[in-house]
């Protein structure tokens, strides 16, 4: 087995491109938070404690003062439910990890370092040092870039002028493209978009999030089974 130092370095090497890509997204997130009245300290806390980009962008979109705690927690839960499957898939590969190491590792498990670790496990045993290499600086990078964005965001002025208010819409479209699985996703997206927009116009925020999400999930449930199931995997 390789030295832990070398394992760590290889993890860091594998996560580096995703880390660089996360910097402008983190800066933007911090600036959007500043636009909603969050302080840099609050943004740093959220990045460090929640560490889930998609859920954090969704939260800042529905954020208002005082913070709607239940709505924010529900939106965060729905967006992060995928972690359950990610963790269930990675757990059998964490053979050399102590229970404490597992508990700490999943705290910093994100889409990117999860994917790197899954790929690594195909070739050789996944080590604590490798996982730490993909996770620790990636986590710190997110906390720092979002905090810097919040510090600079108050100087940026109206985000609408630079089109920054549309940036998370564009980011989410890009993220959805990454989850694309053909017609099933198209039906989900259409149902979610129409239900969300209709509820937003008629009942107002924040109900559009739950309405759209449930409509999209229901559409996928209705479609499911008819399509390529396990056989396509």
């Amino acid at each position: 087995m390789q030295s832990p130092f070398r394992e760590f370095r290889e993890g860091l090497r594998d996560i580096a491109p995703a880390m660089i890509a996360a910097i402008p997204i983190g800066l933007l997130f911090g600036a959007l938070c500043a636009g909603k009245g969050l302080s840099p300290a609050e943004v740093a806390l959220m990045g460090a404690l929640v560490f889930a980009g998609g859920a954090q962008f969704a939260a800042v979109e529905i954020w208002r003062a005082p913070a709607p705690i239940t709505v924010l927690a529900f939106s965060t839960l729905l967006i992060n439910l995928r972690h359950v499957l990610m963790g269930a898939s990675l757990a059998p590969k964490m053979r050399g990890f102590t229970p404490l190491q597992r508990a700490l590792s999943v705290y910093v498990m994100a889409d990117e370092n999860w994917a790197m670790s899954e790929r690594r496990a195909l070739e050789r045993p996944l080590t604590v040092a490798y996982f730490a290499g993909t996770a620790i600086l990636f986590w710190l990078n997110w906390v720092m870039s979002t905090t810097l964005g919040a510090l600079g965001g108050s100087l940026m002025g109206d985000p609408k002028r630079l089109g920054a208010d549309f940036a998370f819409t564009a980011l989410f479209i890009g993220l959805v493209a990454g989850f694309w699985k053909g017609r099933a996703t198209a039906v989900t997206v259409a149902a979610s978009a129409l239900a969300s927009a209709a509820v937003y116009v008629s009942a107002g925020p924040p109900w559009h999030v739950a309405a759209g999400a449930l409509a999209g999930i229901a559409a996928a449930y209705a479609m499911g089974g008819h399509q390529h199931g396990e056989a396509a995997r």
């Binding site: 962008f57 979109e61 729905l78 967006i79 819409t169 989410f172 996703t185 149902a191 979610s192 409509a215």
Partner: peptide, 12 residues
């Protein structure tokens, strides 16, 4: 379908 349904619901 959860990730796509939720992300789209937020930005719709």
């Amino acid at each position: 379908a959860i990730p796509a349904a939720v992300l789209i619901a937020v930005i719709a």
